[in-house]
Simulated scan of single mutants.
Amino acid sequence: MKNERCLTQNDAATLSRIAEHLLRMGEVEVNAGEQLLDIISTSIILPVDVQRKGYVTLYSTISYSPVGSDEVRKLTIVCPQDANPQLALISALTPIGLALLGRKALSTIEVNLPSKRIEKLKILEVLPLDTNIGELALS
């Protein structure tokens, strides 16, 4: 069976810490902690210091387009504490962040929006970690 997600070991560790924190908080709403654990457990985890080109990681910048549209959008997936939607720094805990993590460029994915709608997106390009943004650490 082909696995559709691939995470770096650093991303898996960071996402695990975030999930553990969320589960301890016990938020009743959509529990992103459980979703993160599901993503981690069903992903290929790469060895230390190995990163596959073209896969969405924390702090990578993604160009994507809604399926059926010519509009190109760009965002960077970040840890929750670094999120700033005005700068297109989107938390990994948002529906689009959860849908994109570990996915490969040129894939088409489905994003479950809070409005119970599903939006299909085509990942056009994944640019590696943007070191100008921040550290991969939970405060």
Rank of each mutant, 00 (worst) to 15 (best):
60 S>V: 09
121 L>C: 12
72 V>W: 01
68 G>H: 10
92 A>V: 14
120 K>Q: 15
129 L>S: 05
79 C>R: 11
69 S>T: 15
60 S>T: 09
100 L>C: 11
87 L>W: 05
85 P>W: 04
112 N>F: 03
114 P>W: 06
132 N>F: 14
75 L>F: 13
63 S>M: 00
128 P>C: 12
134 G>Q: 07
118 I>V: 12
63 S>T: 00
86 Q>P: 15
83 A>F: 02
131 T>Q: 02
113 L>I: 09
65 S>F: 10
122 K>T: 02
80 P>R: 02
127 L>D: 05
109 I>E: 04
137 A>D: 11
99 A>T: 07
62 I>E: 01
120 K>H: 14
108 T>M: 09
79 C>E: 13
69 S>N: 15
78 V>F: 10
139 S>M: 04
59 Y>S: 03
83 A>Y: 02
86 Q>F: 15
132 N>L: 13
60 S>C: 10
88 A>G: 11
97 G>M: 12
73 R>A: 08
75 L>Y: 13
109 I>F: 05
112 N>D: 05
107 S>H: 05
75 L>S: 14
64 Y>S: 09
99 A>V: 07
62 I>R: 00
139 S>T: 09
100 L>G: 06
67 V>D: 06
128 P>G: 12
62 I>A: 02
99 A>K: 03
105 A>T: 12
136 L>T: 08
115 S>Q: 08
88 A>I: 10
92 A>Q: 05
136 L>H: 07
98 L>E: 01
78 V>R: 06
112 N>A: 07
138 L>G: 06
136 L>C: 07
112 N>S: 05
92 A>I: 14
92 A>D: 07
133 I>R: 04
129 L>C: 13
102 G>P: 03
72 V>N: 05
69 S>P: 15
88 A>V: 10
82 D>K: 04
73 R>T: 11
95 P>A: 03
114 P>R: 07
62 I>H: 02
115 S>L: 09
72 V>P: 01
84 N>T: 14
109 I>G: 06
76 T>S: 08
83 A>T: 01
59 Y>W: 08
105 A>C: 08
95 P>V: 06
101 L>F: 05
115 S>C: 10
130 D>C: 12
80 P>G: 03
139 S>K: 10
83 A>I: 01
75 L>R: 15
100 L>M: 12
97 G>H: 05
66 P>L: 15
118 I>S: 01
89 L>E: 09
126 V>N: 04
78 V>M: 06
116 K>P: 00
135 E>T: 14
134 G>E: 09
137 A>G: 08
70 D>N: 14
110 E>W: 04
70 D>T: 15
79 C>Q: 13
101 L>W: 01
113 L>H: 07
101 L>R: 00
105 A>E: 11
109 I>T: 08
64 Y>G: 04
98 L>M: 03
77 I>D: 13
74 K>Q: 14
99 A>I: 07
94 T>M: 03
130 D>T: 11
107 S>A: 08
99 A>F: 05
78 V>P: 08
110 E>F: 09
139 S>N: 06
83 A>H: 01
135 E>I: 14
115 S>G: 03
119 E>H: 02
87 L>T: 07
93 L>R: 01
